[in-house]
Nucleic acid binder design. Structure first.
Length: 425
RNA sequence: GUGACCGUAGCUCAAUGGUGGAGCACCUGGUUGUGGCCCAGGAGGUUGGGGGUUCAAAUCCCCUCGGUCACCCCA
């Protein structure tokens, strides 16, 4: 039976068989955030388009071609959030959080939307946890953010991840660097490919992460941004590195690491995973000291990261990491005969009230068919209620693992199950 | 937006221009009321859709839709 409707391009159904991964991520994140003192915030799934145009920046791919924008019936220009940071920064300003004790440390979880061609680890709707800390420029806060990301992946069970670190400078020193980079590239103009020629005009920093073979020698000889950092940025970067080194935190300085969004300053970092295809970044972030002011708030530094759940789960699978299993049904109630059926239905209700994860057979089917179902559902015990059991006021309990069966008095069954199920925890 | 590859049963895949199958999964029976293993049977397809070539198309051609991967870029 071919289904008439299909999910839209780039969207995903998360089936029950995958849910354990999602639950694991969710619980791990909430637990960790409370340890680091981050508070959960929820912001709308859509915002005024202008917020993203200002916050993320015109000229970025996100704004130029990836936004799900629409006009609503009141003629407002709205956009499904393509990322969290701008919306959270907006909430920070709107609710006067700059009057709260600083830094204000927040995190949000939910779907984000970008109109892109899907591929491995890239979807039009994907799920992120976004972590943001506003109002503090101390590199110790950058360290905290990096540590948090590191800790998260540790907790999830990752062994093979690569932390990439760089500084992207600030409005004082970055223009100087870009000029130097452009000048260098103009000297090698005939050695680079068409894409890079275009990048040079639109977004020069991007030439650094070009993947074309012919550009690699040019990239290798390109000026490095850390040689151009102003004193402030340099001190910030060195102090952060000092913390990371002292903490024994493994990372590599990647001179080619640049971010696609305008608002990043100073610290930028990504976390890469093996085995999930070309989209290896499971986490990306950095400092964005200009963002809050850009969207109309007081000058406020900020630092944070976003991590994509679909990619993290792909990486977990690729590396053989299994989440703790979700609670499975423990008991199946089977019944035989017109009189036993209602008793079975009510018995099941009683078991559930007692906190036992119980299923009941629907319809009137052969015991064989009900047993088959019980087996498929993977329960430990099947309770069988028939005429004979009713007469004797017992229930036949079948241990599906041992293949043993015995009678338990009806008025003792809850207690019996509690005891025996607890033993197995 | 660009490129490559791929669309056959719920899933994984056969059928190389000549009657669309298998394995797994599902349902029923083999046992008056007993799962798994085994055996027997059953159900399930407009071969993604449309057009063309041909006596004949899952198969060849064109268009279209969808998927996958990669580029651009990003979680």
């Amino acid at each position: 039976m071919a289904s008439k409707y299909k999910r839209p391009t780039g969207t995903l159904d998360i089936l029950p068989e995958d849910r354990a991964y999602w639950r694991f991520l969710e619980e791990t994140i909430h637990d960790l955030m409370s340890i680091y003192g981050y508070l959960q915030i929820d912001v709308p799934v859509f915002e005024h388009t202008e917020l993203y145009v200002r916050g993320v920046g015109e000229g970025t791919d996100i704004v130029d071609k990836e936004m799900y924008s629409f006009k609503d019936k009141g003629d407002d220009d709205l956009t499904l959030r393509p990322e969290f940071t701008a919306g959270i920064a907006r909430a920070y300003v709107e609710h006067g959080m700059y009057k709260w004790p600083q830094p204000v440390k927040l995190y949000a979880i939910g779907p984000v939307f970008r109109y892109e061609r899907p591929q491995a680890g890239r979807y039009r709707q994907h799920t992120q946890v976004s972590v943001e800390a506003f109002g503090e420029e101390d590199p110790a806060l950058d360290f905290e953010i990096l540590s948090l990301a590191h800790h998260l992946f540790d907790r999830l069970g990752f062994k093979r991840l690569y932390f990439q670190l760089n500084s992207t400078g600030c409005p004082v020193c970055r223009p100087r660097y870009i000029e130097a980079l452009k000048a260098y590239y103009m000297e090698h103009y005939d050695e680079i490919d068409e894409d890079c020629k275009r990048r040079l005009k639109r977004n020069p920093l991007r030439v650094l992460d070009c993947k074309a073979d012919q550009c690699q020698p040019v990239i290798a000889g390109a000026p490095k941004i850390i040689d151009y950092l102003c004193d402030d940025c340099r001190t910030h970067f060195d102090t952060l590195r000092g913390y990371l080194d002292a903490a024994g935190f493994k990372y590599v300085i990647n001179h080619r690491l640049v971010r696609g969004l305008d608002y990043y300053t100073k610290t930028v970092f990504e976390v890469w995973a093996e085995g999930i295809g070309a989209q290896a970044a499971v986490c990306g972030g950095g400092r964005y000291d200009g963002l809050v002011e850009e969207i109309g708030g007081p000058p406020t530094p900020g630092v944070g990261f976003g991590a994509g759940w679909e990619r993290i789960i792909l990486a977990m699978k690729a590396q053989g990491i299994e989440p703790p299993p979700l609670p499975a049904p423990q008991v199946f109630v089977a019944h035989l005969g017109k009189e036993a059926k209602p008793k079975a239905v009510l018995l099941t209700a009683t078991l559930r009230r007692a906190g036992i994860r119980a299923l009941v057979a629907f319809g009137e089917r052969s015991l064989k068919s009900q047993m088959r179902e019980a087996n498929r559902r993977g329960v430990r015990y099947t309770l069988i209620l028939g005429e004979g059991e009713l007469e004797r006021q017992v229930v036949a309990v079948r241990d599906m693992q041992q293949g043993e069966q015995f009678d338990v008095p009806l008025d003792r069954i809850v207690e019996w199950l509690r005891e025996h199920l607890q033993e197995q925890e």
